[in-house]
Design a protein around this nucleic acid. Sequence first.
DNA 1: TTTTGAGTTGTTCGA
DNA 2: GTCGAACAACTCAAA
Length: 485
Amino acid sequence: MAPSSRPCIVWFRDDLRLSDNPALHFAATRGTPTICVYVFDEESAPLRAPSWRPLGGAARWWLAQSLRCLQSDLAGRGATLLLRKGPAAAVIARLAEDVGADTVTWNDIAMQPHRRIGNDLVGALDRLGIPSRIFPGDLLAAPESIRNKDGRALRVFTPFWKRLLATAPAAPLPAPAALLPADVPDGGRLEDRHLEPTHPDWAGGLRETWTPGEASAQAMLAGFLDTRIHGYADNRDRPDLDGTSRLSPHLGFGEIGPRQVWHAAHFAAHRRPEIARDIDKFLSELGWREFCRHLLLDEPEIAARNLQSSFDGFPWRDDQAALRQWQSGLTGYPIVDAGMRQLWHTGTMHNRVRMVAASFLVKHLLIDWRDGESWFWDTLVDADPGSNPANWQWVAGSGADAAPYFRIFNPILQGETFDPDGDYVRRWVPELAGLPARLIHQPWTATPVELAGAGVVLGKTYPEPIVAHKRARGRALAAYAKTRE
DNA sequence: TTTTGAGTTGTTCGA
DNA sequence: GTCGAACAACTCAAA
């Protein structure tokens, strides 16, 4: 039978790439004309999931760049990316009807609102007599394949990781060499969605730091596995070094898929056995992303509610002034402030520093973890609906397999251990740059002569500590002791 | 069903 | 300066 001349519609969501894209691969090999579409949908998700949140500002900026790359990459293969707005199921069903679609296909996203909207679309297409094809989504393993005996997601990472290691993620698919063009209706303008800031344009630091898009994601992975992977297991904790993969936002928007990362890493380990330990450590970070997504499917309210209800009565302090000081990087603790300013400027924060900054908000300032989670959600380019809330709850102690309450990071010690020369602080807190390494993580212990020599006036050019570490630690331990009763 | 063993990331104190 | 113990108790996974 000759291939249908009716078009196949590929619905893009968090899979903004051509390679290892099963839905796109299906359309390309089917031999029908292909229509690609992305829908800006801020209407149906909230109805389907009360705690659904629109993308944060930094992520919206990334999305705009990524869609532009995808448009251009698709154009190179002869296809157009349509941009639409509205409730996705209705919008795509209408498009499918208008163009007389042969099939509509997409990749699963294993989150409740996304699946519900997908089900709505399947229903709408059924009524039109148009078949739909859904492919395994953006995870190494389907959440259904790793469950405890009650059919729930695992709550402890190590057994989860062992189970995941025992599965073999499918080999990645190649990008289609060419796509058959289709007669497409009007494309829709990216500019009309106002994803990027204009007045004021605060995205300068994002542009300096990142190059979104599939080609950049592939280059980032290749460069990482070629050089930075050496010593990753240790260097990944050093914010002053360039030791991490920096793949998270690319993964978040699906410019690269976890299966591609997995297979590339295994290939690298096979060629160079000396980096096996680094590769294992790196892949386990991919495992954490996966763990949090599996958990999210079971706990869609994870960003709103304590996983451990014993925390529901926790005596959080309502201190808007302190929250704002934390957000702006003015707590007086250099490692915390450096992290918060890196976040504001670049849309990312080094992983080690995220833990320190989060622990500081929750334990030193006793501010509700949800306030920190929201701030990260709005400012991180890699804010992930699973990892972000799950890790905040881990820090707070309210999460699955959470950190023990007495694990309170000492921001001075953490700074001295992981930023030993103070270079990370110097970069993001330039007003302290003149201080020697011995003092840079605790400027309040410097003598007046030392401070003057560095041009630092505490309380003026740089704040005094917002809380004293020792006192704050005692206060946190007391508050946690109370909730345990 | 019951039991057993283990659980990302730390800090402080005292010997 | 280095080292080990205490900081608690609970939930989860798996045998």
